[in-house]
């Protein structure tokens, strides 16, 4: 069985994990583990972080040879703190992630990614190898290219089951291997059913939507997902522009920081740019409406919702905002609102 490295944030470069000889294992908040995390943290904390910690506390995880945490938001910082307490013997590394994207920040993040890579090779007693890292990045980029092709097709036509199929590929890259995801992606490029009409084309964005079944539900509720931007969907498969810099870690840093950022990452030259990016992506994917789905207590997203709402209003793009807690149950409660929204879109 492959040795696994656990991680929780989309700013974790999977190629570094694989280059060091590990398999990636993104810890999804998908568990029936009892709610215990609130005792170590607080109940008013992101349900993603709490559920991940619940999994650790209930031993609901495969054997992990180490954990990567990213200092991407307060909740993630607190998760790293709590993990020390819950699993004191686990090797842990916390990567400091800048909030802005200037040259100094890219330099700093490239050093952090280099520190991460060296730590991973050391954990596996493997000699550090830039070549292995570059090879794994090449492989990763093939998956990224396939995902882009699938998304392009999704934005043009509705193919039943295509969105959940894409999510399965992305989840495979996150929890098994890039190779396996690539094989799936190449197969998935051929839809099983012809394109259909009649559903409302909608762009989805938010922080966490990882369960393929959710995408099937959306289709049942008359939504044609034209594209999505979540830290668990295509944003996770960040293509790495290896030509951007001779230093591979700097190339990684600039790719992760400059491509479709999470709400917590800002371009200081364009404050509030996330709102414009969502408008552009909605238009580019031919969506008629936008649905935002965020977890409760997610400060980075919730603080930007008013500006996103304003930008969409300005472009007369209908917007539906939903909040949830990672469970399918919380999504089920949204059915009526989603169906009403698609009806309103007039398809």
């Amino acid at each position: 069985m492959n040795k696994k490295i656990g991680f929780t944030c989309a700013y974790t470069p999977v190629p570094l994990i694989e280059a060091a000889g590990f398999s990636p294992f993104r810890i999804f908040p998908d568990s029936k583990a009892p709610d215990q995390a609130g005792h170590l943290l607080h109940d008013n904390l992101c349900p993603h972080v709490k559920k991940v910690l619940d999994r650790a506390l209930a031993d609901d995880l495969p054997e992990l040879d180490g954990l990567i945490f990213i200092n991407s938001c307060d909740s993630m910082r607190r998760l790293a703190d709590a993990w020390h307490e819950a699993k004191p013997d686990d090797p842990i590394i916390l990567v400091d992630l800048p909030s802005g994207t200037n040259s100094l920040s890219l330099d700093f993040l490239s050093k952090e990614y280099e520190r991460l890579a060296k730590t991973l090779f050391r954990w596996n007693n493997e000699p550090f190898s830039i070549k292995k890292i570059k090879d794994k990045i090449d492989n990763w980029n093939l998956v990224a290219a396939s995902v882009k092709k699938i998304e392009k097709k999704m934005s043009r036509d509705y193919f039943p089951g295509y969105a959940s199929g894409l999510q399965q590929i992305i989840n495979t890259a996150a929890t098994e291997s890039t190779d396996k995801a690539l094989a799936m992606a190449q197969k998935e490029l051929q839809p099983e059913e012809p394109a259909k009409a009649g559903l409302a084309p909608v762009f989805l964005f938010g922080n966490l939507l990882f369960d393929p079944k959710v995408f099937d539900l959306f289709e049942e509720w008359n939504v044609h997902v034209t594209a999505s931007d979540f830290c668990t969907t295509s944003r996770f498969i960040t293509p790495v522009d290896t030509t951007a810099d001779d230093n591979i870690f700097r190339a990684l840093a600039s790719s992760y920081m400059e491509q479709t950022p999470c709400a917590r990452t800002m371009d200081t030259a364009k404050p509030g740019d996330i709102a414009q990016k969502i408008v552009q992506r909605a238009k580019k994917s031919n969506a008629r409406g936008v649905i935002g789905f965020t977890l409760k207590f997610c400060d980075p997203y919730l603080a930007r919702i008013p500006m996103i709402r304003q930008a969409l209003q300005k472009e007369s793009i209908p917007f539906l905002m939903l909040e949830g807690d990672c469970t399918m149950g919380s999504m089920g409660q949204q059915q009526t609102r989603i169906e009403a929204f698609t009806e309103m879109l007039g398809v």
């Binding site: 916390l94 917590r264 404050p271 400060d299 008013p306």
Partner: peptide
């Protein structure tokens, strides 16, 4: 000290249309 505070600062810059500078304070 917090992500929410920085998000508010971005909202300020967006509302007032003023230049924005971020000091990233590393944790390590």
């Amino acid at each position: 000290p917090c992500t929410a505070g920085l998000a508010v600062m971005e909202n300020f810059a967006h509302q007032y249309k003023k230049d924005f500078f971020i000091l990233n304070v590393p944790q390590n």
